[in-house]
Simulated assay, not measured.
Amino acid sequence: MTATMIGHDDAEKAFLEAWQGGRLHHAWLMAGPQGMGKSIFAERVARFLVTHGRGGDGQALSLDDPGDAAAGRLVDAGNHPEIINLTRQVKDKGKDLARNITIDQVRGVIRRLHLSLSFGDWRVIIVDAVDDLETDGANALLKTLEEPPAQTLFLLVSHSPGRLLPTIRSRCRTLRFQPVDRDVMAPWLHEQRPMLDLSDIRAISAASGGVPGKALALIDSDVSAMEKKLLAITSTGDPGNRLREALAREVGGTSNRARLELVIDIVPGLISQLARERPTAELAPVFAQWDRIQRTVRDAVRGSYDGAMVGFEIGNCLAELAPRPGQASR
């Protein structure tokens, strides 16, 4: 089941007010952290436009109003001729995506803009993400934004709007997607995954930083199980490295980035717990390992971010905090 994302209310209201008032800007920049559901919002806007008229009649609708049934069926089938997606392509004979959206892709879209509309009142171009454009591609898109075709709307998804060409930003109306408050996130998570324990919901809400997409990824990582693995390293010292090697495998690689972030989010609470349980005279090693963990994460972010290495090193730090002979176990 695809989750219905939250945090779109202000953006939806701003867009619909412009459409209802006949003041629809030709380019909209959806800016905010990755995982906020900006792509889902862009898809909803595109569907709304191709299933409705030009606007300006003051109708009070929501983006999920079904509109024209025939156009809606084309959208559902992924075949609507007036919705154009510009995104990174899969590399030849592989599964990985190309590093950028190329200039040739942009030129191909621009050529299509010279054709007459074949269905409905709008043509919609979704660029997801505009951050991925090659420099030449960004410049080509800019020229089109400066002289946009009639009845054409651009929806630009951006996770890092500050890195875009200022001239692109200036041609767009910006919709900002802000992190969701915990008191909103928690009931939404319960609705999405009703079998979750309340303690897990609280941990995920805190670790997600208010980003719904990240929260859903963290659910799949199983917070309680990860906490138990980290505590096992801390309590036993993992003398044969078995637990640390397993942790490194579990958080290594691009596909496991959310799990690594979960580990990074869990560790401060675990260290804090150890500090509360230990006598004052035994706190120095705890603080030393916390400093080491912080340096590891900071250096990884600045460098090549090898998830397996970061996970193993965090495990090393926790293993150093295992009870020594004669020290009370926890």
Results as ranks from 00 to 15, higher is better:
L153P: 06
P187A: 10
E147D: 10
I103M: 09
Q89C: 10
G162A: 08
P161L: 02
I110V: 13
M195K: 11
Q192N: 04
I125T: 10
T87V: 11
P179I: 09
R173T: 14
N100Q: 13
I126K: 00
A206P: 07
D121E: 14
P149W: 01
D136T: 07
S116R: 10
T152C: 12
D183Y: 11
L155M: 03
I168Q: 07
A207N: 05
R171N: 00
E191M: 12
D104F: 04
G209N: 03
D96E: 15
A207C: 11
V157L: 11
E147V: 12
Q178V: 14
I204W: 05
R111S: 14
I168T: 09
G162H: 02
A98V: 07
A138Y: 07
L156W: 06
P148D: 05
L141E: 11
H114M: 06
A217T: 04
P161D: 01
R107Q: 13
L196F: 01
H190N: 08
G94S: 08
L115H: 10
H190Q: 15
H114Y: 13
A138G: 14
V109A: 09
L155F: 06
A98E: 15
I168M: 13
Q89Y: 08
I101N: 04
E147T: 05
A129M: 01
P161G: 01
R111V: 07
V211C: 05
L175H: 04
R169Y: 00
R171A: 00
G120Q: 02
D92Y: 05
K93V: 10
Q151Y: 05
L142G: 01
K214V: 15
E134Y: 01
G210D: 09
D96M: 12
R163S: 12
A203N: 06
V157Q: 04
S158F: 06
N139I: 06
G162C: 03
D136E: 14
A206W: 04
L141N: 10
V124W: 06
M195L: 14
R111I: 01
R182W: 07
D200N: 05
P149I: 02
L175G: 05
E191D: 14
P179R: 04
A217K: 13
N100G: 03
D181R: 15
P212D: 03
W188Q: 00
L164P: 00
F154P: 08
P148L: 11
F177L: 06
D128T: 02
V130R: 07
R88F: 09
G94I: 08
P166E: 02
A150L: 13
L216C: 08
E134P: 02
S118C: 13
T152V: 14
I110Q: 08
T152A: 11
D197C: 01
V180D: 05
R173C: 13
P187K: 08
D121Y: 07
S170I: 09
T144E: 09
L198T: 10
G213I: 10
Q151M: 12
F177C: 06
E147S: 10
G209D: 05
R193E: 02
V184F: 04
V106I: 15
T102Y: 09
L117I: 01
A203T: 03
R202P: 03
L117R: 04
A98Q: 15
G210P: 13
R99E: 10
C172Y: 00
G162K: 00
G120E: 04
E134V: 03
L216I: 12
